[in-house]
Design a binder for these strands. Structure first.
Length: 354
RNA sequence: GGUGAGGUAUCCAAGUGGCUAAAGGAUGCAGACUGUAAAUCUGUCGAGCUUCGCUCUUCGAGCGUUCGAAUCGCUCCCUCACCA
């Protein structure tokens, strides 16, 4: 987690952290992590960990600009590091030292075994949004083959301490999602994750998630990869998603955004503390929030910290945003238990005017 | 008092006759951010308007040369450095 310690994550109420196979593989390397006795020990976290397979990074970086291509946006100003994908795996260049690397399903599982996360993912191929349907289909089929190989490699060394998730692909196409959902359900995965392109807009994403959830094994835990807006989570939960992971809360925090429940008349899910309107706002970000940031500091102070480019600003907002997400999850679980969950739930933010 | 350097938009700073409402920074104002190469990136930034374009006023001040001046000349004002 950028900008916060695992101790602070604990205090924020976090119960699980996602770590990244791709980045840890390139730097510092999974052997290095193993020498520490595994990820849990190295990062001082004795709760559950999930590792991504590395597929997303290879392909998103390969297409020249992180998630943009997969998400349907075009921002191609970064050097492309993906060299070649073949049936065996993905050839790519390390962005750290330029060295050629080869990630296969077996290698991904081996790395994740070395890292020692509790929940791990199969290697899949992430198809960009702009791919034609035929390509998406071909790519999905290859992902399926890779998932089988991942599973075999996983089984070969499994000591029962790790659990493997399969990944449902198929882009925005319902027939492909149906096939992929069924395929993953037929394998003996512990859980399943929904990956791949979810479309271009938020609306389409919600539709694709809802549609895909129909074809997913209902008795296994279901994870939605990479998604974490407030409304996205409410929509996902409505459709049966159990877990989410997302950089948005922490990245937003480092960029000056503080999560706040959306106003029913305003689709924005955060306030931008860098904005001039907060320069004299002495209230906490959210007076109902129990986090260290809201309990002790004003919006004006956070505003000043960002103005002064003090990294403490990003740290405090990260604490707030993670705390916020944890509270959101608790409230959702509570609503489900009480039988009154609604994805239309809105929580009013304290008035923004002074 | 002497000698030298210089005064450009909110600030710093290019520009030494037309392509200049004026490069580039910074600040300011706002936007983006969703399996993290992001404590990042983008837009905007003289004034006004009927704002995919038009009008007005700018480069210390004034006067002049020129078809045309931030750019050339003269006078004045003001900074800074060194020497007395």
């Amino acid at each position: 987690m950028k900008a916060v310690t695992t101790q602070q994550m604990l205090e924020a109420g976090a119960e699980i952290i996602l770590a990244n196979t791709y980045h840890l593989f390139l730097q510092p390397g999974h052997e290095f992590v193993s020498r520490h006795g595994g990820l849990h020990k190295m990062i001082h976290w004795n709760r559950p960990l999930l590792t991504d397979s590395g597929g997303f990074q290879i392909f998103s970086l390969g297409h020249g600009g992180v998630a943009n291509e997969i998400k349907g946006k075009c921002n191609c100003n970064r050097p492309k590091t993906l060299l070649k994908i073949d049936e065996g795996g993905a050839h790519f260049r390390s962005y750290v030292d330029g060295q050629r690397c080869y990630l296969t399903p077996e290698k991904s599982i081996e790395i994740q075994r070395g890292l020692g996360a509790d929940l791990i993912l199969t290697l899949d191929e992430c198809t960009p949004f702009h791919a034609k349907k035929q390509h998406t289909e071909y790519s999905m089929e290859r992902s399926h083959r890779w998932e089988l190989r991942s599973f075999q490699e996983f089984e070969r060394h499994s000591d029962g301490r790790q659990a493997l998730y399969g990944i449902v692909q198929g882009g925005v196409y319902e027939d492909l999602r149906e096939r992929s959902g069924h395929f993953v359900a037929e394998q003996e995965f512990f859980g399943q994750a929904i990956g791949g392109s979810l479309g271009e807009t938020k609306e389409q994403m919600h539709d694709v998630v809802s549609m895909t959830c129909q074809y997913v094994c209902k008795t296994r835990p279901t994870h939605l990869l990479g998604i974490g807006g407030i409304s996205d989570i409410l929509n996902g939960v409505k459709n049966g998603i159990d877990t989410f992971d997302c950089v948005h809360p922490t990245r937003l925090a480092r960029h000056g955004g503080a999560l706040a429940h959306p106003d029913e008349n305003d689709r924005k899910e955060y306030i931008n503390l860098k904005n001039a309107q907060f320069s004299e706002d002495m209230r906490p970000i959210d007076e109902n929030c129990s986090c260290y940031c809201c309990q002790n500091f004003s919006r004006a102070y956070i505003h000043y910290l960002f103005r002064a480019r003090e990294m403490l600003g990003g740290q405090l907002l990260t604490i707030h945003n993670v705390t916020f997400m944890m509270r959101l999850a608790r409230e959702i679980r509570s609503m489900i238990r009480n039988g009154n969950f609604s994805e239309k739930t809105h929580f009013r933010l304290p008035s923004q005017s002074k």
